[in-house]
Design a protein around this nucleic acid. Structure first.
Ligand SMILES: NC(=O)c1ccc[n+]([C@@H]2O[C@H](COP(=O)([O-])OP(=O)(O)OC[C@H]3O[C@@H](n4cnc5c(N)ncnc54)[C@H](O)[C@@H]3O)[C@@H](O)[C@H]2O)c1
Ligand SMILES: NC(=O)c1ccc[n+]([C@@H]2O[C@H](COP(=O)([O-])OP(=O)(O)OC[C@H]3O[C@@H](n4cnc5c(N)ncnc54)[C@H](O)[C@@H]3O)[C@@H](O)[C@H]2O)c1
Lengths: 212, 212
DNA sequence: TTCCGTCTGTTACGGATTTCACAACCGGAG
DNA sequence: CTCCGGTTGTGAAATCCGTAACAGACGGAA
């Protein structure tokens, strides 16, 4: 609406929302920025400033209304709708993703899965039927799909991403161990446990004494 | 050695290393910061600055020696050693992690897996035998384990993290959808596809026109 | 050897992000 | 009704980070 909102702020909002959901489940009705910050290892000022980009949700002397703030955050992030997701690559990882029960309850509905391997096509995985990779373009043009999950080998990931982008996908979740190129107006996030570990080893080594 | 190196810089190094490994495999022997930056969607200045924290690895007029820089980065990150990893929680996700062939070649050896479910204990998964969760403490005290992977339900994740930390683990890769509390000298990274999607929806919504 | 185009390492700058600090505010106690 | 402990929202200050720019170095051409 008004300001340009820093991307780091947007990236923190889902964390806040998740914590608020947990508090709501415990029956908490109000929370201060201090209490929330303590739970999330974030400074209270950070939380207040982040939220202030979007409005004034708290009450001085009290804190924030838990269900109220949760609802607002969900509106801001667009989590009050259903999002359509497709998965490309139904190998080991792709199957695990399709079968994972954690997306649906959060509003991310897996509406299709594609694989290039004829042996995979037609099989039912986690309630949906695997389609041929050749059907990808057609499907995306005839159905609204918001987010594409890329779970193919790195060697073909760029090609798959290009297909998704050309077909009008707005966001990509990439599991392949490479950095695909996407236009600036497409969101992309990477999930890579190896990369995550490889930055932690630096600090382990440092703690051991920097040297050997 | 000298300066305090920003964590963002450390987090980018594995990405550089991965790209260099790909170039090396293609037989490339030199690369400029410009070329590398183009491949990774990072500015050349960023790459040069990042590397300059650690030394002078390039040659003016030429660029960087690919295998040489890769070797140096691997040394800096500690990727020239073998790291011992344990997995806690061998459910769907934990099994997929243990069976995933992508860790070993990168020097991350899964040396043990633990589960609280008696039905799971004793089974062989991906070449290792699942141990009882009660053995966790003992195992960690008798064996060097560098990194713990947490793949248990969110409700018990904090408890598992506490156990790992108390037993002297230095780094944790957390797959549970919550933010466990860890001491400042322990590294932790989170992998959560739902959170990743939940920040992208903000931008999809924005692109659709901010409104509806 | 000299010249030229290229590319690094580094410093200086500016923008982005976080932290600080406090006025304004809230609701309850007395 | 007033006071008080507690907490927000927010500018200003401080810090962190990325970008720009250029001197100096390199290798090849001639
Ligand atoms: N980030 C993670 O946590 C993680 C974990 C495991 C694997 N991975 C990565 O995910 C990817 C898949 O891993 P995996 O273990 O499932 O591999 P896999 O070989 O089991 O599965 C890959 C699947 O992609 C299919 N495929 C190939 N080309 C395709 C195309 N053009 N269109 C559609 N489908 C195509 C193959 O037929 C296969 O079924 C790899 O890049 C791997 O490195 C990531
Ligand atoms: N980040 C992701 O990509 C991703 C994907 C799927 C699941 N998850 C998360 O990972 C976790 C595991 O998911 P899942 O689908 O494998 O669930 P799951 O129920 O199949 O497996 C959980 C396992 O943990 C074991 N366990 C429970 N308490 C334990 C303890 N104290 N010590 C050791 N083991 C214990 C259980 O016996 C079970 O085998 C969940 O928190 C889930 O939300 C994350």
């Amino acid at each position: 609406m008004a300001l340009e909102i820093p991307e780091v702020v947007i990236n923190r909002l889902p964390i806040y929302a998740r914590a608020l959901a947990a508090l709501a489940e415990q029956g908490e009705t109000v929370v201060s920025s201090q209490a929330l910050g303590q739970a999330l290892d974030v400074t209270p000022a950070q939380i207040r400033k982040d939220l202030s980009y979007f409005g004034r949700f708290g009450k001085q002397g009290r804190g924030y209304n838990v269900p109220g703030l949760l609802t607002r955050l969900r509106e801001i992030l667009g989590l009050d709708r259903q999002w359509h997701v497709c998965v490309v690559g139904v190998g080991r990882l792709g199957q695990a993703i399709v079968e994972y029960g954690g997306f649906g309850p959060q509003g991310f509905q897996i509406v299709a899965a594609f694989d290039a391997d004829p042996a995979m096509v037609g099989r039912r995985v986690g309630g949906i039927t695997v389609r041929a990779a050749t059907e990808l373009d057609g499907f995306l043009h005839n159905n609204r799909v918001d987010i594409g999950v890329v779970a193919v080998p790195a060697a073909v990931a760029q090609q798959v991403v290009d297909q998704l982008v050309k077909a009008g996908i707005r966001a990509i979740l990439n599991y392949a161990p490479m950095t695909p190129h996407v236009p600036r107006d497409i969101s992309i996030r990477h999930i890579d446990p190896v990369i995550a570990m490889q930055s932690m080893t630096f600090y382990i080594k440092l703690a051991e004494g920097g040297g050997k």
